[in-house]
Amino acid sequence: MFDGHNMSGPTTVTVTDGVIRNVDTTGAPPPSTDTFVDLGPDSCLLPGLIDSHVHLAFNAGPDPVSALGETDDAELLTQMRAAAHTALRAGITTVRDLGDRSYLAVALGEEFRQQPHLGPEILAAGPPLTTPLGHCHFFGGEVEGTEALRQAVRERHARGCAVVKIMASGGNMTPESAAPHVSQYSLDDLRVVVQEAHRLGLRVAAHAHGVTAIMEAVEAGVDTLEHVSFLTAAGSRPEPDSLAAVADSQSFVSLTLGRDPRHPLPNHPAMVSQIEVLLGAFRDLYKMGAKIVFGSDAGIGPFKPHDVLPYAVADAVDLGFSPLDALASVTSVAADACGLEGRKGQIAIGSDADLLAVSGNPAVDPASLRNVQAVFRAGVRVR
C-alpha cells in the first residue's frame, strides 16, 4: 500500500459508509463478518488520484474550442459527464475543473455529491476570470476593474465554486488574447481577487505563463500557480531569481505534465521549441523544494485525454522526482493544494474511501499506475 506518504506491506482497509474506519498493516486476516475484497499479492492499493487542473468542458479533440462553441449546454453537460467517468475509471477520484461554461461543472459536481459512485469529486472554478477578449473569454468570465473583480469572486462563491481561476497571463488557445508571456491583470487586480476569495474561504488558481505574471501572482498570494512556463518575448527564461521566488513561496506549483504518447504535441512554437528548457525548470523547482502538484490540463487536445494523469507521474520520475514524491504530488500534496487535506489523498482513518488498486508497484514502476485493477469511490467499487 501507498498511503499518500509512504509504502507499506500487506494491508487491510476497513470501510463503512464511504469512510475509512481502520487501516491494518500487520498482515492479519480481516474479520470474517466483513465483506472482503482480496486484491491479490501483486496489487498495490493507493488513494484515489487527484488531478489538480482539468477542463471537462473540452472534448480532447483536435479543436476543442470550436467544438465547445458548437455545443449547447445540455449536450455539453452530457459530454462533461462522460469525460468525468473516463477520469474515474482511471482511478482519478477527484478533479479540479479550472474553467467551464455556465457553471456546468458545479452542477455536475452536485450530481456526483448526491451519487458519488457516478463520478469523481469535482472542485469547480466556473468561468475563469479573464480580460475582455482575454484568454478563454469564450467561457464567459470577462471582467475588469476592482469592483467588478470583487463581484465576480462573490458570484462564484454564491454559485458554489470551490476555487477561483484567474488568467494572469495570455494563453495559447485564444488567438485574440494577449500573447502567453504578456500579463492580463495587474498586481493590484490579483491582490483584489486573492483577498476577496480568501475572505470567502475560496482558493485562487492563477494561469501564469509569463515571468511577470508568475512573479506578481506569487506576490499577490495565489494558492496555486498553473503552468509556470517562465515565458518572455524571447521564449522560456527560467532565471535563478524567479525560480527561487516560486520555490520559496507559499503557493503550490501546478506543473503541466502528462500526455498520451500516441498523439503529438500541438504546434505552439513558443512551447514546443522550448520544451527542454521548461522541463529543466520543472526539475529545478523540484530540487529547490517547491510544493509541487501535477495538473494535466486534460481536455485541451488529443494528447490530453481525461484519463491522462498517470502519465504525469512517469514523466516526473523521468525528470528526477523520486517515485514516492511523484505519487504524493497526485495524492496527499494535491489534497493540501486543493483544500482537501485529511479527507482526500491519503489512506487513513477518517478519510474518504476513494481508492485505486493497480497491478504492480508504482513506487518501482510508475507505468503500473495505468494497470488499473479496481477503483472505489466513496467505498463503492466502480471498476
Rank of each mutant, 00 (worst) to 15 (best):
R191Q: 10
A378P: 05
H135V: 07
R199I: 07
R150H: 02
L324A: 14
V204M: 14
L123F: 00
M7C: 12
L255Y: 07
L68D: 02
V222K: 07
C44H: 12
K344Y: 10
S296A: 08
S186F: 03
Q79E: 11
F2A: 02
V163E: 04
T16N: 13
A233G: 14
S52W: 09
G280E: 11
A105M: 02
A244R: 13
A298K: 00
V65L: 06
P30H: 02
V153A: 08
A247C: 08
E144C: 13
H117Y: 12
L46Q: 05
R262P: 08
K165V: 03
R101P: 03
H263T: 11
D284L: 08
V211P: 03
T14D: 11
A208T: 09
D63V: 12
V13F: 01
D188M: 09
L88C: 00
Y311N: 14
P180H: 13
A290R: 06
A367N: 14
P41C: 08
M167S: 06
H209T: 14
H209M: 12
I20W: 03
A335W: 06
V333A: 13
P366K: 00
G339Q: 05
D72R: 05
A290C: 07
M271Q: 12
L324C: 08
S249P: 10
V228S: 12
G295Y: 05
I50M: 02
L46F: 05
E219D: 15
D3M: 06
T131W: 04
S368M: 01
P10Q: 08
